[in-house]
Amino acid sequence: MTAKSMVLTVAHRLAILAYIVFALFPLFWLLKVSLTPNDLLYSEGVRMWPSRVSFDHFRFVVAHSDFPIFFRNSLIVAGSTAIVVTILASLSGYALSRFAFRAKYWIVALMLLTQMFPLVMLVAPIFKMLSPLGLTNSLTGLVIVYSAFNVPFATFLMQSFFDGIPKDLEEAAKIDGATQFTAFRQIILPLTLPGIAATIGFVFTAAWSELLFALMLISGNDAATFPVGLLSFVSKFSVDFGQMMAAGVLALIPACVFFFLIQRYLVQGLTAGAVKG
């Protein structure tokens, strides 16, 4: 290795390291404060690691607050949304990828348009529509709303994964005696598992984070999701940073775990689509 390429390699690794530090530092700080006992919080406010670590904040959040309920609600909402959206988006993504039909252009345009709305504008009408159906203040209502919001992007994502699978395979299956739908279920879907994982992960994270509609459609604690709970916590106990951050760390875990598992499929799927142009 020449001296010049050595310098370049070191610079490259340092740059990557800088990005990692920038990405992780805020999360590290969240963890640090949540582990700092209350009596050290202010005296050691700027230290990188407290001289004493305590799990009191976590213990309090889990045992003496509504967070376990919020957690459960969020899991149900995000999980159901992810499943519903992935099923719908697989179907519609497959249609966009494999069929040439008249309304295709309009469907794509419609889905792009939905990405452009100020969603705030929809809150009141949606509330008015859901309330006579008894779907406000209910997890089902949230699942329906989140599903609709996430279907367009998930459809594009699934389409790019389907585009990466050769058409020969379906044709072979059709000649082997399968209908288009059988070929879709038995040949194409199993081959799109990475894409399905990526879509599930993406939608789960999005539904897990949603704040606006959760705030507006849910009023009681029973059906509140994590973001709503955390926000109400912030306004109620705005001085107890330790407990808030402990709750924050807990809210972070499922989303991050999911994302960690699927992020490499996300790049793959987008590459497959990009190759096709």
Binding site: P166, E171, A172, K174, I175, D176, G177, A178, I187
Partner: peptide, 16 residues
Amino acid sequence: PKDRDIAMVFQSYALY
């Protein structure tokens, strides 16, 4: 195709 009772070998083989 499924009702024509023919078999086909593809250039790409198209194995599952």
